[in-house]
Every structure is written in C-alpha cells, then in structure tokens.
Amino acid sequence: MDTNNPATEPLAFSAEERAAVYRAIDERRDMRHFSGGVVAQEVMQRLLQAAHHAPSVGLMQPWRFIRMQSRERRIGLHRMVEQERILTARAMGEREDEFMRLKVQGVLDAAEVLVVALPPGREQHIFGRRTLPEMDLASAACAIQNLWLAARCEGLGMGWVSLFDPAALADFLALPTGAKPIAVLCLGPVDAFYAAPMLQEQKWAARASLADMVYEDSWGQPSVS
C-alpha cells in the first residue's frame, strides 16, 4: 500500500488498527505448549467466523471443522499423531534423536482440538481450479491462517499438526468418500507465546531472509525494489 498517496487514505485502517494487524501477524506462533483451560463459546464462534470469512477460489469454501470434544476420541487422535511422529523420526536419519526431543503437538493439552478437512465433491468446482486443482487446499489454508491470527488477537495459542496418515484419520473420523483431512489444530490458553518460532528457538531451523525469497521478472533475479 502506498501510504504517501492520498487516494489510498480513505480505504486505509487507522495507524492503531494497522499496528494491531501487523502485530498479530508478527507475533503469531505455531504453539505446542498449552495450559489447559477452556475457550468460551462466544470466543470460539468468533474464531470460526473469522476462519469462515477466508477467501476461496471460486467461492468454493472448501473447509470443514470437526471439534474433537470427547476425551476418548482425543486419546485416539493422539495415538495416531504419535505413531506418525515415530515414523517421521525414523525418516530423519541422523536427526532422528533430535526430532524426537521436539514437542510437536498438544492434542491432549489444548482446550480445543479441531480437525480441518476438505469436503467431497471438490471436482465440481472448476472456477480457478482447471489447471490448479490444489487451490482447494490453498483456500482452506487461508481459513486456517484467519483462525490463527484471530486466536492470537484473543490471546489464545494455536498449533497446526500435520503428523498423521490422512487415510487413517479419515477412517477414524468416518469422513465421506472424497473428503480429506489436512490439519489437526490445537487451540487454547497458553502461559506465554514463544519469542520466536519454536523450531528457531530449538535451533532446528531459522527464518530465511525476505530478500532471498523475492525475485524480479524471472526466477533467481534479485528484486531491486
């Protein structure tokens, strides 16, 4: 946005509102440590409404949220995640032990756990997907990001868990043929937010420089802007 162009001013948020939006983006973390508690029903509805206001290709709205309320079902989900965690660790080779020391999920600790699934019948939506059918997944990811940012604004942590076998989880949740689970979201109160991404704090990886991610006109050409 060109903040020096008067034409943009009627459409822009106030300075305080902009600061709040950018703060939520900057301080959002993929949380793994939760402090139990509950998420009030009215807050949960605000969060889900924020997710439901996400953009989607062709307005297909390819997101379905399954709230895992039963402790027994949560334990079953936890077992599935742990099984995949072990398999993932084995695939890490020399980093297996290091990976196993990481906390990768909070299914049993978080106040709320949601499974996000793509619904069946997505092939009927051609608008914007004829050459890029994966835009259903991209659209659902936008909904998850909306939920994540809204949760941060509410002072709640959220973590996206992708350690599961999609076919096994689909069977566990009795999803209809053609539906596909894409995320297990752990959501709820936390004692504190990580000062930096947890994997960065744990020396697993580091955030790349933005300059290395922006090209101009063709691949690999550094931007001069």
Rank of each mutant, 00 (worst) to 15 (best):
L132N: 14
G93S: 12
E98N: 07
E201D: 11
Y194W: 05
P133L: 14
S139D: 06
P181W: 00
V184N: 01
L108C: 02
L137I: 15
A168R: 05
V115L: 05
A167R: 01
A89E: 08
A196Y: 13
E201S: 09
P176S: 12
R152I: 00
P166C: 10
Q83T: 03
G93N: 05
C153A: 15
P120F: 01
I182G: 04
A89I: 08
L163E: 06
A192Q: 10
A151R: 00
W148M: 02
E123T: 13
P189E: 04
K103R: 15
H125E: 04
H78D: 13
H78Y: 07
D109V: 06
A195N: 12
R152F: 03
V184Q: 04
P176Q: 06
L187Q: 01
L149G: 05
L187K: 01
L199V: 11
M198S: 05
V190W: 07
A140C: 12
W148T: 00
D136W: 11
R101G: 12
D136T: 10
E154S: 07
T88Y: 12
V184M: 07
E94F: 10
G121Q: 11
A167H: 10
A167I: 09
P166F: 01
R122V: 09
W148L: 01
A205T: 15
F127P: 03
Q105G: 05
E123R: 08
L87H: 14
R207W: 06
L87A: 15
A183D: 04
M135E: 12
I86Q: 11
C186S: 02
M80V: 11
H125R: 11
E123K: 11
L114N: 03
L102M: 14
H78P: 08
D109E: 13
E134S: 14
E134N: 12
L185Q: 02
Q202C: 09
K203S: 15
P181F: 04
T131H: 13
R101K: 14
D97G: 07
M158H: 05
V107G: 00
P181K: 01
L199S: 08
Y194E: 09
V184I: 15
M158D: 00
G93C: 05
R79D: 10
L132A: 12
A208Y: 06
M92Q: 12
A174T: 14
E154Q: 08
G93T: 09
C153L: 15
M92N: 07
G155Y: 08
Q124T: 15
K203R: 14
S162T: 08
M100V: 01
V104Q: 06
L137D: 14
M198W: 03
L185K: 06
W160P: 07
V81F: 09
F172E: 13
I86H: 09
A205F: 11
C142I: 07
I86S: 10
A111M: 00
G157E: 10
R95F: 15
V116N: 01
C186N: 03
L173E: 02
A168K: 09
L132D: 12
E154W: 03
E82F: 00
F193N: 07
R79V: 10
V113L: 04
R129F: 05
R152S: 05
S139R: 02
L169R: 03
A168N: 06
W204V: 11
Q105R: 08
A183K: 00
F99R: 02
A151P: 04
L137T: 15
E112A: 00
K180M: 13
L149P: 01
D165I: 02
R85M: 10
